[in-house]
Design a protein around this nucleic acid. Sequence first.
DNA 1: AGTATCATGTAAGAGGTTACATGATTTT
DNA 2: AAAATCATGTAACCTCTTACATGATACT
Lengths: 202, 202
Amino acid sequence: MTRNSELTTLEYALLGLVGAAPMSGYDVHKVFATTPLAHFSSSPGAIYPALRRLEQRGLLTAALDRTRETRPRRVYSLSPAGDGALDQWLRRPVTREDLIRSDGTPVLRFALAGWRLSTEEIVASLREWRSTLAVYLEEVRGHRTRVNPQAPFTAALALEYGLHGMECELNWLDDAIAQMTRHGRRAAARTAQMNRTTHGRS
Amino acid sequence: MTRNSELTTLEYALLGLVGAAPMSGYDVHKVFATTPLAHFSSSPGAIYPALRRLEQRGLLTAALDRTRETRPRRVYSLSPAGDGALDQWLRRPVTREDLIRSDGTPVLRFALAGWRLSTEEIVASLREWRSTLAVYLEEVRGHRTRVNPQAPFTAALALEYGLHGMECELNWLDDAIAQMTRHGRRAAARTAQMNRTTHGRS
DNA sequence: AGTATCATGTAAGAGGTTACATGATTTT
DNA sequence: AAAATCATGTAACCTCTTACATGATACT
C-alpha cells in the first residue's frame, strides 16, 4: 500500500509523537508551537495533510472523538504497520548524509527512541553515531588545507564553525553515552531489587 | 518585477557565490558537490531553474561564453539590483527565527559577507548574533524545568543536546569576534604602513 | 573504442507555505 | 458583546527532488 515507501522527516516525527501518546492534529500543533521541536512548522497546512497521508498508508488509525458535535476530534494512534515503520526508522544508523544535511534527524530519532527502544539499543546507536561523526569530522578537517588562499578570512572561520560544532557534538555524545549507560544500570538494579522483594531473598 | 520579493536560501546562496566571483551553473554545482557547502543540493534541477529565476528578476545577468558551440556556458554576474539585494541580505540581523529554524543561514551570511562587507560591519553583526543567541539560550534553558516527568531520559538529553550546541556556538562567536577584531587591526596597520611608505614618513 | 566528465537543461510529482474558511467554546 | 482560542480543514502557489535527455570533449 505504501506507494512511495520513503516518508518525510515530518511524517516520521508525527509517527514518533503519536507513538509516544495518541494525539490529534491540534495536539501536534501545540507540541510544535510550544516545545523545542519548534523547527517543525506548526502550520495546519503541513500537519493535517501529513496525518491524512499516514492514515491512508495504513500507518495511523484515527478514532473519532464525538464529545463535540461539530467537527469531531480525530485522535490518531499507531497501527501495527506504523509501529513497524517507526521502529525501523528509529533503528536506522546515522549516515554521513544525515550529518551533511544536518537537519536534526539524529537527535530527533534519539529523543523519540526513549519511548520504544531498550537502553542498550539506544546506547549502541549513539556509539555508531559517534563513530560516523568522527570519520566525517576528519574528512572536513581535510578541507582546512584546501581553502582557497584568496578567500576572505570569514570563509576559514565559517569552516571552523562547522568543525567546532562537530567537536561539541562528539562531547555531547560521550556524555550521553555515559549517562545512558548509568541510567541503564540503575534500571537493571531496580528490576533486580524488585525481583528480590517479590520473590523473597532466596 | 520581483513578484514574490522574498528569495529562498538557495537563491541567496547563489547570489553570494556569484557575487564572490562570476560563475556558471556548473561551477556552482562543483562548489556544492566538493566543499562543506554540501548541504545545498548540487542537483541541476535545483540550480539551473534558480539561476534563471534570479536572471528573470533582474538580479543576475548572464554572459554567453561561446568558445564551445553546442550549448554555450552561461556565466552569471551580479546586476546592480542583485548587488543591492545581496548586501541587504548579508546585513540582515540574525533573528530568533533563524536560530529556531537552525538551517545554516547565519554562518552562510557570515562566510559570504567576507567578500563584500567591512570587517567592522561583520564584527558588529557577530555581536548582534551573539546577543540574540544568548537570549534564546536562556529561553530554551527554561524548558528544562518544564519537561514532562513521564518523558523518557532521552528527551531530557535531547534538550541538553540543543543547549550544548548553543553554548558551543557562543564560544565560537566569542572566538570569531576576537579573531576578526585582530584581523581588522592588522589590515588597518597594513594600510597605515602603506600610507607611510607611499607618502614618506612625515 | 569506450567511458568519464563537461555543461546545460526539462518533466513529473510531491511536499510545504501562506492564506483563507468554518463554527463552537471560553475568556475578557 | 467582542475577542481569543479550540479544532479542523482547503486551495493556490512555489520550490525541490528524482530522473531523464543531450551532445561535445578528454581520458585510458
